[in-house]
Design a protein around this nucleic acid. Structure first.
Lengths: 339, 339
DNA sequence: TTGAAAGCGCTAACAT
DNA sequence: ATGTTAGCGCTTTCAA
């Protein structure tokens, strides 16, 4: 292990520049020599040195992901890793490599600065949880290729990508309507829970335009906890007429919702259907398995990767924000057994 | 962004080699000049180029992780990412960066070969799921610094790290004994399920030496599924005398075990305690939350990182296998309410 | 204690 | 179509 371009040139009886040219598919090389050189490369088991190429070309072919990597993130936030996996896949297909770099919000900016200065990456993908004002400033000032994974919760000029929660809401509503449900309820997070609010907005929109507007008494907001999920469901059940389907803004609330329905002896979905968002492992572990609007987080990573590569190739790109689509994963919680 | 060593040298009124020396803490530099040079570096916001250093030193300061990154791995195998996170953390502390590279078992070997040839990493961390005979051969033949994450299921000379399943088993048993349980049962995967078998072995060992040997009728093996978990528990419940605690080899089996106990109207842990291995998110979501023997997978990553760096610094190291420890996370499933 | 200069492996004008 | 050569940014003998 250790053949260099010189070795190849020597063995092939050519100059190094010729070898370099076949390496880079330069037009001026005759098919004949190209073949010969490639053959020698195979024989010598030659691969060009990554760092030598980087330094000569001034480009690293590396994308660094800046994210929190503190204990248990993999368990608490598998989405983030699924995004990274999706990103790695499409980056690899385009000849890029992916660096994973743990940071916290406090030092993300400094780290970004160092990475940019050391030219140790061509682009940066930054998880929204470590975003900060200074970092946002740095990125836009330097016009360094980047994308923020998730929508920043402050005004800025950075590029970001997120799933379209409003759209997810409409998907949820139209799916239930299609299944014949008409009295649809929504239980979700507080008004400042952006994800929940946007989903609610989508649900409202869709039901409205279908002619079955979401009634206020069918909307309850609380914390995104199992306990509040139970509580909100209980409220719903305390006031007739009962809905025939409940949309839960997220899995935690859904968990509580299912608890409450069970404890009242109601059958899911025969007595009441339940639907939520995001496919967590336990979405399908609980009884009954939950129908979810899946946000295809992997695709989000993939698109982020694609965007970054485009950005590197064409630094003048103006695209700022990206939004991914979602789709239904139908499971038992919305499919009554045939009688 | 863009200061080079020359700029620093010029601004500091020294030669580049002097700057390089202060960069690398060479002994021969006077504290005076060192100070001055460092000051200039700060001012110019200078960081040495990663690739230039790599090429000059012949070392990349990069560890590449080879693992499967197919859709849903983040959800199905969060452990792997937690290992990676742990590894990144300790690598970073030692000045190394981490590359994440998705592969499947079929091409892992070829990819490894390329990485080694391109010198694009100083060491390789390979998830056991993509290990193969050829890859094992390559690694040992080239004596390239590496570690396999998980114990390979075939004989080989590779270095690997895994948690000590036997030890986890003894922990589980001794914990339950300490809680006063005496009639302890074990339900687990088939004999060829290595993890399960080793855990069983540990349980047996511990119970034996405590004077309460595990009775054969309290052992059932099946598939690692929720369904088989239910089935095995049912068997247990069909034959008196009933155990007072059940150790489940993994979460899937535990899930079924809990189902079965509930469906027979038994209280956990009052009628029967339940304990399993590995802390999954749903271990604490289900009712009651499960006591688990946690394998501290993050620490495993951390140790792997440490080992790799040692290996890079001292290529003659002979250490082959590593084993991490485990500990109890006590939750309600083994803690009866006080009366 | 410092500096000059020869690489490291590759790319890219520029010549031929 | 191919070769010569001057870098890329840094490290590292070797001299001074």
């Amino acid at each position: 292990m250790g053949a260099t371009i010189k070795d190849v040139a020597k063995a092939a009886g050519t100059s190094v520049s010729t070898v370099s040219k076949v390496l880079n598919g330069h037009y001026s090389i005759s098919e004949e020599t190209a073949q010969r050189v490639r053959k020698v490369m195979k024989e010598l088991n030659y691969y060009p040195s990554a760092s030598a190429q980087s330094i000569a070309k001034g480009t690293t072919k590396i994308v660094t992901v800046l994210t929190s990597l503190s204990p248990n993130t993999a368990f608490q936030n598998p989405h983030m890793f699924e995004i990274v996996a999706g990103m790695e896949e499409t980056l690899r297909a385009k000849g890029y490599r992916l660096h994973l770099r743990g940071v916290d919000a406090a030092d993300a900016c400094e780290v970004a600065e160092e990475i940019i200065s050391r030219r140790s990456a061509d682009a940066l993908a930054i998880h929204v949880s470590v975003m900060s004002h200074p970092l946002s400033g740095l990125l836009t000032k330097l016009r360094f290729p980047h994308i923020v994974l998730g929508m920043p919760n402050f005004e800025s000029q950075v590029c970001w990508i997120d799933n379209n929660n409003v759209y997810s809401g409409t998907i949820a509503a139209s799916y239930l309507l299609g299944k014949g449900y008409r009295k649809i309820a929504f239980i979700g997070g507080q008004y400042y829970d952006l994800g929940s609010s946007l989903r609610l907005q989508g649900v409202k929109q869709e039901l409205q335009s279908a002619g079955f507007p979401l009634e206020d008494r069918y909307i309850w907001l609380g914390d995104s906890t199992r306990a509040d999920g139970m509580g909100m469901t209980a409220k719903l059940l305390d006031h007739a007429p009962l809905p025939d389907a409940i949309i839960c803004a997220n899995n935690y609330i859904a968990l509580g919702c299912v608890d409450a329905l069970h404890s009242r002896g109601l059958q899911i979905p025969e007595d009441m259907a339940v639907l939520t968002f995001d496919d967590y492992p336990f979405s399908r572990m609980i009884d009954p398995p939950l129908t979810v609007v899946d946000i295809n987080v992997r695709d989000m990573g993939s698109q982020a990767g694609k965007f970054l590569v485009d950005m590197v190739r064409n630094p003048n790109m103006q695209v700022q924000t990206y939004v991914t689509t979602s789709n239904i994963l139908e499971r038992r919680s919305t499919v009554p057994k045939k009688k």
